[in-house]
């Protein structure tokens, strides 16, 4: 009895296996005949090609820029899960979160029964593996930290959710904004320093290897930290370069006014020319950090402020 039950189970398992091997093929065959059941085939940034038998209907986005992109492309009705950091646009409030960026809750993700999880952070690779083991399709979208990389992220997201045309339109409008910016960019380029962190425990800035650096450069700024890497910078270099303009995004949980007060009152920064002359500008760091639909807008905001200070 026991033996035969085991044998039955084994037989059922092998049948299931056979079906699961064949199913992608049959799905592909079927899609060629019926236009409603299109196949999604997207190679992600790991080089892994994901094939879906239909467009995903329950999507979990584990990155704020992907969430923004899905919203911008009009696919937000299919978002069932996002992270704590996905705060734009306003409507993200109504979508359940699955935890923070680096350690999302895998159980919560699985419980949402998604048919696609999109990830864009290398730190989440362990999470990806855990989700993939449960059989949920995962796409990893992480492109070079530049405007081209951003367009690629939008293109891939569009392909994945079946909004390729919308993605193309969005990219074209962003490219138009970027072309407008190069038209107004001031000459000569002002030297610029972006404050990613300051004060007690060191100075951090958008170094040459960051997306923010690319945005600053395209907005017509000459980033003094272009040769530095990994966000870290030394205070004495800031004084040695003494930049024309300082970009100061508000600190986490503070307003720009509070942050500005703290910055100009600090003895380490008070003597800088940009502080003395009041050439400190600001930008919402979420707009400039995230590689998404608002990236061109970030560049435009900077370009306009650079112009204002170029007398």
């Amino acid at each position: 009895m026991i033996m035969s039950r085991k044998r039955t189970l084994l037989l059922m398992l092998s049948m299931l296996l056979a079906i699961s091997i064949w199913s992608p093929l049959t799905a592909r065959g079927a899609s060629e005949h019926s236009p409603t059941e299109q196949v999604v085939t997207v190679t992600d940034s790991r080089g892994i090609t994901l094939s879906l038998r239909s467009y995903p209907q329950r999507i979990v986005s584990l990155s704020p820029n992907i969430t923004e992109t899905i919203f911008a492309l009009g696919g937000s009705d299919r978002l069932v899960g996002i992270t704590d950091y996905c705060d734009y646009p306003e409507a993200t409030r109504d979508i359940p979160t699955v935890g923070d960026l680096l350690t999302p809750n895998v159980e919560r993700i699985v419980a949402l029964e998604p048919d696609l999880v999109i990830i864009s952070n290398l730190g989440q690779l362990q999470t990806i593996e855990a989700i993939e083991r449960t059989g949920i399709p995962v796409s990893f979208i992480d492109e070079p930290e530049s405007m081209e990389g951003t367009y690629e992220i939008i293109t891939k997201t569009g392909l994945l959710i079946g909004k390729a045309e919308e993605a193309q339109l969005l990219i074209e409008s962003m490219q138009k904004t970027m072309a407008d910016i190069s038209g107004i960019a001031s000459e000569p380029h002002p030297t610029v320093y972006y404050v990613a962190g300051f004060g007690e425990w060191g100075d951090f800035t958008a170094t040459g290897d960051t997306f923010i650096h690319d945005i600053i450069t395209r907005a017509g700024g000459d980033n003094i930290a272009s040769d530095a890497v990994n966000w870290s910078f030394q205070l004495e270099l800031l004084h040695a370069y003494d930049p024309d303009i300082i970009i100061l995004p508000p600190l986490w949980g503070s307003t720009f006014e509070e942050t500005l007060q703290q910055f100009v009152d600090h003895p380490s920064y008070a003597p800088l020319s940009a502080v003395q002359a009041g050439r400190i500008i600001t930008i919402d760091n979420n707009i400039i950090e995230r590689q998404g639909p608002r990236s061109a807008q970030a560049a435009m905001q900077l370009a306009e402020q650079f112009l204002m200070h170029a007398w």
Binding site: D100, G197, W201, G253
Partner: peptide
């Protein structure tokens, strides 16, 4: 309290960068 992560980390590693 994630907001303090950076500063607490720095205290555990040691640095003279904030000297005045």
């Amino acid at each position: 309290n994630r907001a303090q992560l950076q500063s607490i980390m720095q205290w555990t590693l040691g640095s003279f960068s904030s000297a005045s």
